[in-house]
């Protein structure tokens, strides 16, 4: 049967996870975790609630060089933050389509990535912005790029007695622009069939974050700059970039449709990013 723990400091969280011997599950918003718990109420899970931990990083901290998210940052926090909307429009757009309003009031950004669903809404955007994940455990902290965090569906490099303490996003460089596109089965609240976050730099390099088209959210970028005004060039670049996708058929879509939709959404996201107003970089 499920057990509940409410530690009040980071060290205690790590100890509780360690004591749980692999059965520990971190609880912030619970919007994915509790769906799973309901289906397996007899599993001996230890739910470790982070909401009373005093020494966590603040939910959202904006500095000159970066933005830092702590475990308690919710989708609603992101959706309402105008500073983020200017710097990371693809991330804010993604945060606004996670579940319903009531879900977004609970669901946490870090929980969303730790759930490691290939279809997770915020991962593609976090990937293109070069998010770095700081994991804490018995051996202390370690920081890795988000692109190395995902291992497979539901799997991350975070060990059973570790947890994600923060996610840092460097401020985009001058002239960097980004956008998010998503396809769903119905117009109201739904899980993504395919999602794409696109970033374009002032020089014309393109970065794509792809959701629901591989075992993990995927990151891919062009080797050389592309003339964003040249439709054919963008088309070619996108075609090459999405080559890394390995979509499958599931309840939400067939493989072929997914494959085709990545291209459509990627084109649209790149074009929307290119048309948008760029950001101003750090300390210029």
């Amino acid at each position: 049967m499920t057990q509940y723990r409410r530690p009040d400091n980071v060290e205690d969280v790590v100890r509780t996870l360690s004591d749980a011997e692999g059965n520990g599950r971190l609880l912030v918003g619970g919007t994915d975790l509790l769906v799973a718990v309901r289906r397996r109420p007899l599993d001996p899970l230890v739910l470790v609630d982070l909401k009373a931990v005093a020494d966590l990083p603040p939910a959202i901290e904006v500095t000159e060089a970066a933005v830092r998210f702590g475990p308690t940052a919710t989708m609603s926090d992101l959706a309402a933050d105008s500073r983020l909307a200017a710097m990371f429009p693809a991330l804010v757009a993604a945060s606004r389509v996670v579940g319903s309003l009531a879900i977004r009031n609970r669901a946490s950004l870090i929980g969303n990535i730790c759930n490691a669903s290939p279809a997770g809404d915020t991962a593609p955007a976090l990937l293109i912005y070069g998010a770095r994940v700081t994991i804490v455990g018995r051996a202390g902290e370690r920081t890795i790029p988000l692109s190395q965090f995902f291992v497979g569906p539901g799997l991350t490099t975070c060990g059973p007695d570790e947890f994600v303490l923060r996610v840092d996003l460097p401020r985009p460089a001058d002239g960097y622009r980004s956008a998010f596109e998503r396809l769903t089965r119905r117009r109201g609240v739904d899980l993504a069939t395919v999602s794409v976050a696109a970033g374009v730099s002032a020089e014309g390099s393109i970065t794509l974050g792809l959701g629901a088209v591989g075992p993990t959210p995927l990151l891919t970028e062009t080797a050389a700059a592309v003339d964003l005004e040249d439709v054919d060039a963008v088309e070619q670049a996108v075609k090459q970039l999405i080559g890394i996708a390995t979509p499958i058929s599931d309840l939400r879509s067939g493989r072929e449709y997914r494959q085709a939709m990545i291209a459509v959404l990627a084109r649209r996201a790149v074009s929307a990013a290119a048309r948008s107003v760029g950001t101003k970089g750090p300390s210029t």
Partner: peptide
């Protein structure tokens, strides 16, 4: 749907303990 500290939430996805 209920209000939890002023925000609406799905009370089916909140533990009583939380």
């Amino acid at each position: 749907t209920v209000f939890l500290d002023g925000r609406i939430v799905n009370s089916c996805l909140v533990l009583c303990a939380e």
